[in-house]
Design a protein around this nucleic acid. Sequence first.
DNA 1: ATTAGCACTCTTTCGGTTAAAGTGCTAAGT
DNA 2: ACTTAGCACTTTAACCGAAAGAGTGCTAAT
Lengths: 352, 352
Amino acid sequence: MNLDDRKRKILSSVVEDYIVSAEPVGSKTLVDKYHLEYSSATIRNEMKFLEECGYLEQPHVSAGRIPSTKGYRYYVDNLMKEQNLSMIDINYINNNITGYGDTEELLKQAADVVSKLLIRPTVLTVQSEDLLENIKIVKISDKLLLIILMSQNGTVKDCIAKLTDSVPEEIIEQLTLVLNQNLSGTPLEKLHVALECVIAKELKAFSFVLSQICESIKYEMSKDSITTNTNVESILNLPEFADIEKAKNFVNILSTKNIIDSTLDMAKDGGLGIIIGSENNEVLLKDVSIISLNVETKDKHIGKLVVVSPKRIDYSKTVSTLKYINNKFKNLFLNQNLENSKYKKDNKESEG
Amino acid sequence: MNLDDRKRKILSSVVEDYIVSAEPVGSKTLVDKYHLEYSSATIRNEMKFLEECGYLEQPHVSAGRIPSTKGYRYYVDNLMKEQNLSMIDINYINNNITGYGDTEELLKQAADVVSKLLIRPTVLTVQSEDLLENIKIVKISDKLLLIILMSQNGTVKDCIAKLTDSVPEEIIEQLTLVLNQNLSGTPLEKLHVALECVIAKELKAFSFVLSQICESIKYEMSKDSITTNTNVESILNLPEFADIEKAKNFVNILSTKNIIDSTLDMAKDGGLGIIIGSENNEVLLKDVSIISLNVETKDKHIGKLVVVSPKRIDYSKTVSTLKYINNKFKNLFLNQNLENSKYKKDNKESEG
DNA sequence: ATTAGCACTCTTTCGGTTAAAGTGCTAAGT
DNA sequence: ACTTAGCACTTTAACCGAAAGAGTGCTAAT
């Protein structure tokens, strides 16, 4: 549907006013605030037209208009301008994504930063297709082993195995070899299956030590890979949650695993996805927008970062922030890639 | 102040009814529900007396009574009976404190379990007096080191140091020695200071590798050692939070670091502490009760586990649950202690 | 010492009125 | 043909007073 300039301007103003005010926008407000060169009566006619086309809604007859899902969609696709982040925001991002830690740690920092800047909850998952690169086992005391799992995307996980008996170093070395032979290249999400096979296949040779190691790994990997950052104190301040029932609904959505999973699934491959309100399949999400970023380095997806919000959110700032974050990751991994490729070479040498 | 049996029975009934109903308790309710052998008029007289003594409060003249801080205190000290946990709760605890992981992981599991069972937020901190036992450094790739910190209480922390240049194994071994010489026995909370000294003292000898390692450790140790488990979806259902402003206040308290710190400080040494409402020094906590457990193994405090709640909470169940948890920890560490002592011996051998 | 009974107080609820906001439409103006 | 002033209309929000409900404190009787 093509809209003429005046209609576009009006729609855009309604959306932008509503995004900050959270109040239905009336014709008079528009004329006063946005310096439209027509009378309120003309604006009213246009708004009526926009409502008939489904871009605007009226909570009741004596209220102003609010954007419908279709209206937000038109705004996002056609009207919204990208904005430059403020220096304050840029500094905040740069100071709080430190570069310390592994990939997962960096993603967590990013999710936290986004949540703070946008005052919205975020959901994070590291890319499940990440493959296991290498396992190391370090004996940290007589009966305690530290098992270190390194993934190809640069995530390092570790866990502790408690043994019932002491095990000599050479056995540990052998076990490490066995585990690497069987598990290298396995997708992290399928590790527990692969572990079962290892236990079944090799158990006799190495008795229960291997089994104890595998149980520890399984426990570590069974921890939920999805992190939600709820940020309650600030979302309770959003005007949509003046009604506590609405707040409960929203918080419930955040803690409903299925729904969160499905928001992650909906995150389109390739960059940035926006799903607005009833565009979601899930009926519980009809007033919720999902803005997702597939965090990418030069050649890999390393995770999904999702902003979950009431439909009313500053889409423009959200998009700008997420794009900035993604660029930041590309830069962070530019240097590291070099290391990574060296690392692979090194590793083969030391293994061979 | 001594109260006769009837008064004690009435006070106890008011507290217990209010704990579940969250509504002021009237004389008629008491007679009907608790089978008191007196008329409502008698009960009224007694309640008036209890109010004059400060054990009960009346929100307004035509309402029933609710317990005052003093009333809760009397109940907790004199009237409350310990209860046996239900089999369901016991099973839940045993299934969810698995024994996998290090001390900190176990404490986190415990905090999570308590939060779920009591439907209240919990705050957790590992004992800050925990001393560093030993540092290990593992080269996991050309320019990546994994640094492993083991504490005397059995907590294992690790972090990754990214180097700008490759470092040979023998240097790493020397560095490990240096770090252990300088840092073993240091309280974890003072590690960052000690690290500064190490950097200052040894920097010249080992160039910036040591500095990069130290920075990584410092970053890891700077992560907040306090975990709060807010559990929003359920606390919003508490009747005290029907008024969203109250909910915001409470959530704000949970996210105010100073206040959380002070609740942790107030946790009395030696077992279990209960601080009710205005007994707290902090005025913001006047409607909040803090129930804290110093988690102990046979001979050590390993952490503090704190339940933060509106004054209205089932004190009896809370106490029983926390005591059960503490016993569980004592048992868990009974076996491990043997390991631990061996570990220390072992360690000295391998270092000597 | 206990209790029935009642007057009293305060809160909650409900219906009805009024004020405010913003519309849609009509008729007039450009 | 487009724009706009003006007004009737609808709906919500705010306010008010009356009535109902809850639970008390006190008095007088047991």
